[in-house]
């Protein structure tokens, strides 16, 4: 059996030989050099066009600037966190409906999933911002940005979860049923936990998309990081510096999401999950 348990990774990538190692070193040096040249060009361009002048950066020394950005940051985190929670729950529900085997329910779920996956989130936001008030439904800017972002993500997540559930070997379900678990318990105790672990990489990418989607909160004038950044741009007449700082914050947030998800995945259970209990031939 041990001969067959070679992982997919080992099967696809040979251990590098001396030639490959040499190529890797050369490739690394060349690309590092290219990156440095690129950076130097950008900085030079900034310098030439005066973007590095003190007036564009001085206001970052004022605590109020950072406080304002912090406020926006908190806004972004609130919207993204709430949208993430809603979309995760809704995604699971839509997936369960779609795979329920009850034809009408599965059909409705499928239409909803395809709709939310297909329609741009900005369009959904405009619908909540401009469309719903015309029929008398009003909500705070927070919900006008959170709900559309969540809906758009839930369609994708439903499909991500479905792929995960399908990837869990059938034998797991059969074993669970055979010890007397109901189909519901089988799903929640055996299949979903394994499916979640399988889809964690896609889940992370989708959470990052949620954070990015929140950046259009200015449409509904919700004070998120982006919106507050825009205000700073007008009040200080500084475009490049503010956008640079904001971009760095977004990158840090998404990096944090990545790290958090990875550590959560590690802590949520057993370190070694492999398919070697299945398909032993």
């Amino acid at each position: 059996m041990s001969a067959h348990t070679m992982s997919m990774r080992d099967a696809l990538y040979e251990a590098p030989g001396p030639r490959t190692k040499r190529l890797t070193v050369i490739g690394t040096i060349v690309s590092l050099a290219l990156v440095c040249v690129g950076l130097a060009l950008v900085v030079r361009q900034f310098y030439v066009t005066g973007q590095l002048d003190a007036k564009y950066w001085a206001f970052f020394a004022r605590p109020t600037t950072w406080l304002y950005l912090l406020n926006g940051f908190v806004g972004t985190v609130k919207v993204a966190a709430m949208a993430a929670v809603i979309s995760l729950v809704l995604g699971v529900l839509l997936m369960l409906a779609r795979t329920s085997g009850i034809k009408p329910l599965a059909f409705v779920a499928r239409v909803i999933i395809d709709f939310f996956r297909g329609v741009p989130s900005l369009l959904l936001i405009y619908f909540f911002y401009l469309g719903l008030p015309t029929v008398g439904i009003r909500m705070s800017p927070f919900w006008m940005i959170t709900i559309p972002v969540a809906l758009a993500a839930s369609g994708v997540l439903a499909e991500v979860f479905r792929a995960g559930v399908n990837a869990v070997p059938k034998g797991q379900t059969e074993a669970a049923l055979s010890i007397g678990l109901t189909p519901g318990k089988t799903m929640f105790k055996i299949v979903l936990p394994q499916a979640l672990r399988i889809v964690i990489p896609s889940l992370i990418s989708q959470l990052v998309v949620v954070v990015k989607d929140t950046t259009v909160a200015y449409v509904v004038s919700y004070p998120d990081l982006m919106q507050n950044g825009r205000v700073l741009i007008t009040t200080n007449d500084a475009v490049v510096s503010v956008y640079l700082v904001t971009a760095v914050i977004y990158i840090l947030v998404n990096y944090a999401i990545n790290q958090l998800s990875i550590s959560m995945a590690r802590r949520s259970g057993n370190p070694i999950i492999s398919r070697t209990t299945e398909n032993p031939t």
């Binding site: 070997p169 034998g171 074993a175 055996i190 057993n270």
Partner: peptide, 16 residues
């Protein structure tokens, strides 16, 4: 089902 045990060719232990 709880009253009838089943042992599978591929074990099917709960992997997680």
């Amino acid at each position: 089902r709880a009253e009838i045990g089943m042992v599978f060719q591929s074990f099917n232990l709960f992997a997680h």
